[in-house]
Simulated scan of single mutants.
Amino acid sequence: MTGTTKRLGDRLLGGAMIAMLVLVLAFLVTPLLVTCLLAFDARSFLGPLPPPALSMRWFEKLVSLDYVTTGLATSLKIAVLTTAVDVLVGTAAAVALDRSNFHGRSLLMAAFLSPLIVPAVVIGFALLLFLSRIGIVDGFTRLLCGHIVITLPYVVRTVLASLTGRDRRLTEAALVLGATERQAFWNITLPLIRSGMITGAVFAFAVSLDDVAVSMFLTDPSTYTLPVALVSNMRASFDLTIAAAAVLLMAISAVLIIVLERFVGFDRLLGQGLFRS
């Protein structure tokens, strides 16, 4: 009887866990499905769901708005440049932190990762004051600096994770066999941390493309990102172009996820197989 009671309790607990997972999944997915429906709504107003007819009118309006296309072009330029700088600087910083054991290393690592925990509004306001004080008033340059600050921790963290899983004896063996430090890095270390670099680059690109809080402080009248343009459009006249833009950003995110799975793999991203040969 005791064993039967335990098995019944395990089944009830398992059923409760499954029900909770279904509820959480529904909570996460339902807003996305509603947004997709609204983006293809043929009506000229926000009405009850489901829409009576579907149309591409909001996507056509989205691409016809000059300030939206200008913001999208700026966002893509900023995201690409930010990702390139992050990969170079973040990889170098991660390798230096991994190889060094000096006093204050933990403090320096915390400084690199601090943008992840400092509120974005604080970062944006601080960067606005700092860049203005040193004479940088160009909107594009300010946006680039701000996006590098908030996305660099992702590359540093993912590359550090890749370095943690590597066998240091491989580099030592290459040096013993006559390779230089540069050759050991390019032929041994770099292939081992490539997955971390790709993962960090994808995260950096996605975060840069989606940022609002920091960008709001650093834009100027002629240089602004897509999220800032969408927020301005919502304040001026709310319509379903914001839903079309959300679907566009979801599509870009889906492509990034596919790239991440194709070149890295979610098993490695989640920490499995770090010490496999």
Rank of each mutant, 00 (worst) to 15 (best):
R235V: 05
A184Y: 01
V264N: 09
C36N: 12
I148A: 07
I257C: 03
V247A: 08
A93D: 04
A204E: 00
L240D: 14
F185V: 00
T2N: 14
F205S: 04
I252D: 00
T91N: 11
F263S: 05
A96N: 10
A174K: 01
Q183K: 05
V264I: 10
A39E: 11
T151M: 07
I136M: 08
A94E: 08
S114R: 01
P31A: 04
M1A: 13
S132H: 15
V137P: 02
L21N: 08
A16F: 13
R182G: 03
P115Q: 08
L170D: 02
R43P: 04
R142N: 11
L190F: 14
L170K: 00
L160W: 00
L230M: 15
G104I: 06
D138M: 05
I242Q: 07
L177K: 03
F45S: 10
A213E: 02
L160F: 01
S237C: 03
A213V: 07
G71I: 09
F140A: 08
S106I: 05
L131E: 01
L62W: 06
G9L: 12
S114D: 07
V137K: 12
A111P: 07
R262T: 10
L76N: 03
D41Q: 10
A184C: 03
L230E: 04
A184T: 04
V212E: 07
V159D: 00
A94Q: 04
T4M: 13
T223I: 13
T2V: 13
L107Q: 09
T2Q: 10
L260Y: 08
T199F: 03
I148P: 02
V202L: 14
L226M: 09
Y224L: 02
L249Q: 11
D138Q: 14
L8W: 12
A201M: 00
F205N: 00
H147R: 10
L13G: 09
R105W: 07
A213P: 00
T241S: 11
T199R: 02
K61W: 10
P191L: 13
L175V: 04
L209M: 15
V22N: 00
T171S: 14
R268V: 12
F185C: 10
W186S: 11
V34T: 13
L38R: 09
F275K: 14
L209Y: 00
A96H: 09
A120N: 03
A245I: 12
R7H: 02
L152E: 07
T171A: 15
